[in-house]
Design a protein around this nucleic acid. Sequence first.
DNA 1: TTTTACATTAACCATTTGGTTAAAACAAAC
DNA 2: GTTTGTTTTAACCAAATGGTTAATGTAAAA
Lengths: 205, 205
Amino acid sequence: MEEKEIHTEEKILNAAREVFIEKGMAGARMQEIADKAGINKSLLHYYFRSKEKLFSFIFSKLIGKIGSRIGELMEESVSIEEKLKGFVDMYIDLLLNNPYLPNFIFNEITRNPDGLLQNFHSANINPREYMEPLQKQLSKEGYTILPHDFIINILSMVIFPVAARPIIERLVFEGNKDEYKQYILSRKESIVKYVMGAMEVYKQK
Amino acid sequence: MEEKEIHTEEKILNAAREVFIEKGMAGARMQEIADKAGINKSLLHYYFRSKEKLFSFIFSKLIGKIGSRIGELMEESVSIEEKLKGFVDMYIDLLLNNPYLPNFIFNEITRNPDGLLQNFHSANINPREYMEPLQKQLSKEGYTILPHDFIINILSMVIFPVAARPIIERLVFEGNKDEYKQYILSRKESIVKYVMGAMEVYKQK
DNA sequence: TTTTACATTAACCATTTGGTTAAAACAAAC
DNA sequence: GTTTGTTTTAACCAAATGGTTAATGTAAAA
């Protein structure tokens, strides 16, 4: 009984995550989630009262998962280049396993940015806290680039190619999914090389 | 009569563009479009038979507008750095005036990528054609970076910060819209500097 | 074995939503 | 002024959708 409850709840959450991420909040249908979970639609409302509640639940869990990884990385005491390497590595893996994630988050960013920040907060993610230490480490290693510029450029180059996957896949790799995946994996190295190269311009001598 | 027809059609298109771009295809409501255009909902169906048709019409017009600008730029015979400058300049202006555009296009990329490519084609935009000349110019100027890497990294850094605007605005600039705008404008220069710096790594000597 | 409490479902409901229809308004043609 | 063709609207419709309810299953407690 207790076991079964957990089982169905899990089934619902898995199905809902897939549907929400793929179709977004507005495009998702409760019926589709129920079907995918192999249960009656009423059960959705039995476990999570409304679509909005179900969505919030999944969304905040997702944010927590993503955010916690950043925290760990930021606190390691290694060089900027090592941190960069770890960050890019981890995020590209995460995104390859969740290709619809960027789009999903972009949607939520426009639909309800304050709710997203609220979720950050609830998940104990406070990006502002990372800024000052990052700033210090950057200047200690001789880079004058602003920390938010540093972060935004990296996030851009990691996230965009996954958000635009269907187009890049078709346009650059003639629809070959495997070549696309290899390309994204290859960016683990090339982005680091690219960023460190660009940073030389900002190096004070 | 003829004038009035054009007038209402224009009103519909403007309203529809706004709503579609802000809410996406799934989130947009015909009633909201009608209200925003100040007309009866039936008129929408009188001018454009269905939501899908109205959406397609607006979408392809948008794509055409964006795409034609790239074509012009690519054909100018100036240095890579100059082309880069022109590209970044033009796109940042376009995006500042249409902040919801990236999200809108990302949605369509996942919802119907082939329709998007179809639209590219209809608008006489063929990105593959630009690849070879770009490749040649890059190597002539001594850069070994792959042309699609070159383009993807630039698009990333131009588009991402606008797509993530509400978050960046709140997190980095404490909600100050003007500071955010100034930051994006400042990226016109900083992205060029950044990219050209990174390209040094790829320069063959 | 009966009771109890929770899990699950089928049948329904109210609202929303894209879309249709038939009538009214309007402007030009005769 | 009447006819004709087009634009606009109010009223309506069917399907979809989030959500409710009441009945049924089911497993543990008594």
